[in-house]
Amino acid sequence: MAIPVADATTYGEDAAGFVSDNSQIQGFSSLHDSGTGGSPSLGNFPLFVHPGCPEDDYTKCNYTSEQRATPRINGTATARPGYFSIGLNNSVYAEMTSTMHASLFRFNFPSTAEVYSSGFMVPSSPLILIDLMDLGYSRSGGEVSVNPRSGRMKGSGTFRPSFGRGEYTAHFCADFRGAEIHNTGTFLNLNATDEQQALDSLGSGTSIPPGSAGTWIHFARPPKNQIMARVGLSFISEEQA
């Protein structure tokens, strides 16, 4: 069920995740079709990593899929059964594999106190977000939360299928390790806040409109220059994820 890979569908090809043209990387999601074309499909719950934010201010990082899209470093993509990795020009090198129902990520950062990210030198203080969107922008409703102590993120959304009629609901639960947590919060499109830790039916009273929406964690500098992430998946419930 878990098929983690970089999502890059911004240019010529409309595929179900990674393509080998010059499309920028919008995130690393865990649900994908195989062998499809014609229009983007699945790509649910993309996870994206900033190595740091300008002036160490979480509000100055990019959150929407269009803003956060980042070029790959040519020649860094490696793929073999059970493993995929790629380098981004924001100083993040991402590796991933999976179990049956969980995606496993290792994000590697430079050992310097400041790193290059999208035209800026920023403090090495990573921000990781998870977006409720899918590649087809088909989500309706949903809910998402982050635990400010443990960093655990949970969420769900209802989406249109890549082919056929009807809809489906998918759920995720994500855990992280490798660095202390500075701050947590939520975002709706361009706006991020640390005042709300949940959106929609999880108690915030804030409904989730279409587009980018999710949770984020701002970490301290990782002592081993790595952060690990595990994203569990379910079509049944967040508890199953």
Rank of each mutant, 00 (worst) to 15 (best):
A8K: 00
T158Q: 14
A16N: 11
T97R: 01
Q240L: 07
P126N: 05
P123S: 05
P4Y: 11
P223Y: 10
G155N: 08
N189C: 07
D33G: 06
V146W: 07
T184P: 00
Y58A: 04
R160Q: 13
T206D: 04
N183H: 04
F172A: 03
S41E: 10
H50N: 03
L202Q: 07
E239S: 07
G37H: 13
V115Q: 00
D56L: 08
L199A: 04
M153E: 12
T70K: 06
G166A: 05
F107L: 01
G17W: 00
S212F: 10
A241V: 05
P209Q: 06
S30G: 09
L47F: 12
N44G: 12
S124G: 07
G151S: 07
P46S: 12
L88E: 02
G232V: 09
A8C: 13
S138P: 10
I25W: 02
L190Y: 15
Y93G: 10
T99G: 09
H182C: 13
P209M: 10
G27C: 08
S234K: 01
N191F: 15
Y137I: 06
N89Y: 06
H218Q: 13
N225A: 14
P161W: 06
S204G: 15
S138F: 15
Y137K: 14
A241T: 07
S98Y: 10
G82E: 10
Q226V: 13
A229P: 02
T64A: 14
F105R: 01
P54N: 13
S85F: 09
S103R: 01
G157A: 13
S65W: 04
I130F: 01
L127D: 01
F163I: 00
M100N: 06
F84R: 06
F187W: 04
M228Y: 11
S98W: 10
S138W: 14
L47E: 06
F163V: 11
A192F: 10
R68V: 08
V122R: 00
F120M: 06
R230Q: 12
F45I: 04
L47C: 11
I128T: 09
D175F: 02
S207D: 15
P51G: 15
Y11H: 08
D200H: 05
A102Q: 09
P4Q: 11
Y137Q: 12
P161M: 03
T59S: 12
R230G: 00
V122S: 03
T186K: 01
P223M: 05
H32P: 01
W216M: 07
P110V: 05
F48W: 14
G157Q: 05
D56E: 06
G12F: 10
A94E: 00
A2H: 14
N108L: 02
P123T: 06
R230L: 03
L135V: 15
D56C: 11
T215C: 15
A174N: 03
R160S: 08
P46N: 12
